[in-house]
Design a binder for these strands. Structure first.
Lengths: 195, 195
DNA sequence: GTCTATATAACGATAGAC
DNA sequence: GTCTATCGTTATATAGAC
């Protein structure tokens, strides 16, 4: 909806990020113009530069805030001590978190190649921290004899790829509830790493 | 390398597809210009239109030929009869095929949103045919009691996502051989669907 | 803070010469 | 089949008025 001119600093910023996230997820960063984002927000393109340094900075901020939120949400989760419980917690957390943010997830996985080198390194470091969470769980479980995982690092990659794939097919209107989807993935993950 | 002018119909076409595939995989379809592709091929941009109808047609042809080749390669594979053997054959085939074509795989998964509607439907149909191959194997194995898979369709999605993820980390110079990678994924897939 | 207007560059695609 | 030249459009980003 077009808006008349005036001061709207408190709402234009969030609206800009929301519009950019939705459009980047649907059409891709390179295919979306600043004019298109501005039209969605309801301002002219020039006004967006009161909130972002440039288009690249906008992409970086979206990806960084998503990964910061992902890591913070995991840290905040109450956890037990055993590796098996930790793996179940991680699996259900990952599925739930990603189903709640399909657009942010899509961008974080698809737009890495559109990041400038310094930004790419920063995002990759955050992603690596998250992968290490699962890697450590698998390594601990293998040491305890609860899991049969020869290569914790690559097993973690495989599990995360499997879990993240849920965003490509899950729809709220679909046949399965979120709880059923969690159960489905937990069943497969549990068995895949079992002794 | 720049080339002098003249007739080169027999080599420019393949070079165009090879250059476009490499550039689309690295930077994304929307971020790569026809001028950039032409420079890689060693001709001027206008000359490319002797081989393709437009940029969209180029993307579609790359994706379609990749998926056609994928399905044909699977069909040509000698197969046993049991579900367990079929699953192992599928797993090893998928890993091997995808590791051999990282650029084509990347494009086929990342550029779906840049396809025009009619092209999107055609590509989706081919992808669906491939998913159904695994889905049928899982369903047969579940019916025989060899597998414990409650939902063949979504289990197939999960397994394919896990397997395709190999392209995000595997490097020929890395620690693991292709055979070891195949074994690693087969071990996880086998257990994930086991009874 | 947003507007209009614009600087500067690149885009996809085509026409006509050779 | 490829070239040069160009049409018409669009892009990111900025300047100055309000």
């Amino acid at each position: 909806m077009a808006r008349t001119s005036g001061s709207h600093s408190e709402i234009t910023g969030p609206r800009l990020r929301a519009a950019a996230q939705a459009l980047f997820a649907r059409h891709g960063y390179a295919a979306v113009s600043m004019r298109r984002i501005a039209a969605e927000v309801g301002v002219q393109a020039g006004a967006l530069y009161n909130y972002i340094p440039d288009k690249q900075g906008l992409l970086f901020e979206l990806m960084k805030s998503h990964l910061d939120e992902l890591l913070a949400a995991w840290e905040a989760l109450p956890k037990g001590t055993g590796a098996r419980d930790a793996l179940e917690a991680f699996t259900r957390f990952h599925v739930r978190f990603h189903l709640d943010r399909p657009d942010a997830v899509f961008i974080a996985y698809m737009e890495l190649r559109n990041l400038e080198p310094a930004n790419f390194r920063a995002i990759e470091a955050l992603r690596r921290r998250y992968e290490t969470v699962l890697e450590d769980i698998l390594r601990q479980g293998a040491a305890e004899g609860a899991f049969d995982v020869a290569d914790s690092k690559h097993a973690a990659f495989a599990v995360i790829a499997m879990l993240t794939g849920v965003t490509t097919w899950y729809r709220d209107e679909g046949r399965l509830s979120r709880a059923e989807v969690e159960d489905l993935y937990w069943s497969m993950v549990r068995k895949a790493v079992s002794a």
